[in-house]
Write a protein that binds this DNA or RNA. Structure first.
Lengths: 257, 257
DNA sequence: TAGTGGTCTAGACCACGGA
DNA sequence: CCGTGGTCTAGACCACTAG
C-alpha cells in the first residue's frame, strides 16, 4: 500500500547545487507520457482516451495525479473533458478549436465560417530562414499551398502555407480540392499532424498588386500581414503561414488575459 | 444553491451560504469572494493575501478548496503564487503583466520597454457607443488621454484613451506627466482601478495626416489600428483605448493556444 | 527553524450521460 | 443502472524562502 510510488521514486532528492532544476513533479511526467502517446497516435483526434482510473492503474499513480496531468492538457486545449462521457483528443473539426486558429470575426463580433479555395500547391525548397524556423536544413523539400478564404462571398484572406514535405507525403492539389472542412482537419486526419498551438507576428502593410488582385483591393491598400508558426505535440514547428487579411468588414480579435 | 450546501459529506456544511442563484461549486464561490475582496481593496496590488490555511479557516473549507479557488485566479493572472513566500496580488509594475497588455516586440523578438509621453488630457462626454461599451449613459463624463509611446526614441504608438470620469476623479495632465512607469500602474496605485483583462480588435488602416505626423510616417501609410476594451475585477469595462501602431520595426505578437 | 506554497494519496460523494 | 468526470476533505510529506 504505502511505499508504492511515492514522490521519491520519480522526483530527485535535493543535492543539486547549480544544475538546471531537474525536479519535475509526477503529474508533469504523466503529462509528458500522455503527450508522447498522443504523438505516437495511440489515440486519434476526436477519440476518447482511457478513463482516469485506467490511466492511474497504467501509470501506477493515484487518480488525483492523473487528473492534474489531464488538467494541464485540457488547459492547453489538447484534451477536452466531457463530464459523464470521458476525455477526448481535441480535433479541428470542432468549431471551438477552429476559431482559436482563425481570429477573424465580423464587425458585429459573430464567428463567421469561411469558404476556402485552393489556388496553388507545389513542391519548393526551404530557404535558410524557413529551414531554421521549421528545424530543417536549407534546401529540404516543402509543400507550398496558396489558398483564398472568403466570407459570405467576399475574398478576405490569402494564405501562403509551407509544410515539411517529409511529414505530408502525397499531399497535392487534388487532395486539397477534394477536402471539405478546415485544412488542419485534413492535416490531422490524413497525415497525422495535429496543430496544437501557434505564434503569430502581426503587421500592417500595403498590399502588393498580386495580393491586391486576389483580395479585390487596390495595390497599396492597407492589409494585415500575419506570419504564423504552428506547432504540433512536442513543440515541434510544422507549418509556416503568411497571411494577408483585408480588414474592412472583418477584424482580428484577440483576448488579453 | 441549497443542494450545494446539502452535500452532506462536508464536515462543515453550514459554512457557506451565498445568494446568487446559479449552481456553482464551493471553490468557485470562494473564488468569487476573493475577487470581491480584491475589488473592495482588502489587498492591494503587490501585497500578499493571507495564507491558504488562513483563508481555509476564514471560509470554513478545506485548504484544497481554497487552493483550487486560487488556482483559477492565478490562471487569470489576477493572483501570483510564489512558493515559500505567499500569494500576491498581480500588479502592472511587473514586467510579465505589462507585456501581456503591450504586445509590441522588436523584429528580434525582444520585449523592449518603451517611453511614454502624454500629449493631451481633458474631459469629454461619452458618445452613445462609448457609453454602451463602458456601461454608462451617453453624455456621461469621460477623461480623454492621448499619449505617444516611443521605443528607442522612435515614435511607435499613439493611444487615445477614454476613462469613466467617475472612477478617475482628479486625474489631470499634471498627474500623468509626473507619473513614471506604466499608465496601468498609476491607475491601480492612485485610483484603485486594476486592469485585469482586455479584448482587442485589430485592423490595418491608412494613417490620417494627424496620426502620421505624430508617428513620423506619410499620411496613408499602413498602420495597425487596435481597439481595446479593458476590464477590471468584476468583468466591468473601465477603459476604451484606440491605438495606432507603426509596425515597420516592431510587430504585434500573439500566441494561439 | 518556521511558514509558505506544491505534490501526492485515499476515500467519499455529486453531477452527468447513456444503456 | 453503471461509468465517466467533478468536487471536497484530510493528512503526510516535499520544495522553497527567509529570519
Amino acid at each position: 500500500m504505502e511505499g508504492r510510488m511515492t514522490s521519491g521514486t520519480f522526483s530527485k532528492p535535493a543535492a543539486r547545487r547549480d544544475g538546471p532544476a531537474a525536479f519535475s513533479p509526477l503529474y508533469r511526467q504523466i503529462r509528458d507520457l500522455l503527450v508522447q502517446a498522443l504523438d505516437q497516435g495511440e489515440w486519434k483526434p476526436g477519440e476518447s482516451i482511457p478513463s482516469e482510473i485506467d490511466l492511474a492503474a497504467r501509470f501506477q499513480v493515484s487518480q488525483g495525479t492523473v487528473r492534474k496531468a489531464i488538467d494541464e492538457l485540457a488547459a492547453e486545449h489538447i484534451l477536452i473533458r466531457r463530464q459523464g462521457k470521458g476525455t477526448f483528443v481535441a480535433t479541428h473539426q470542432e468549431a471551438l478549436v477552429r476559431f482559436r486558429f482563425l481570429r477573424l470575426v465580423s464587425q458585429g463580433g459573430e464567428l463567421v465560417p469561411g469558404h476556402s479555395e485552393i489556388l496553388a500547391c507545389r513542391k519548393v525548397r526551404a530557404s535558410a530562414e524557413m529551414a531554421r524556423e521549421l528545424g530543417l536544413h536549407p534546401g529540404d523539400g516543402l509543400v507550398y499551398i496558396r489558398r483564398l478564404l472568403s466570407f459570405k462571398g467576399k475574398p478576405t484572406v490569402v494564405d501562403d502555407i509551407y509544410l515539411p514535405a517529409s511529414l505530408f507525403k502525397g499531399l497535392n492539389l487534388q487532395i486539397l480540392k477534394e477536402n471539405e472542412g478546415p485544412l488542419y482537419w485534413l492535416f490531422e486526419a490524413r497525415f497525422g499532424v495535429s496543430m496544437v498551438r501557434a505564434d503569430e507576428k502581426i503587421r500592417a502593410v500595403a498590399a502588393c498588386t498580386e495580393i491586391g488582385q486576389l483580395l479585390g483591393v487596390e495595390s497599396g491598400h492597407p492589409v494585415l500581414r500575419v506570419d504564423r508558426v504552428s506547432y504540433t505535440y512536442g513543440d515541434r514547428a510544422v507549418e509556416l503561414r503568411y497571411g494577408h487579411y483585408v480588414t474592412e468588414e472583418y477584424y482580428y480579435r484577440n483576448a488579453l488575459i
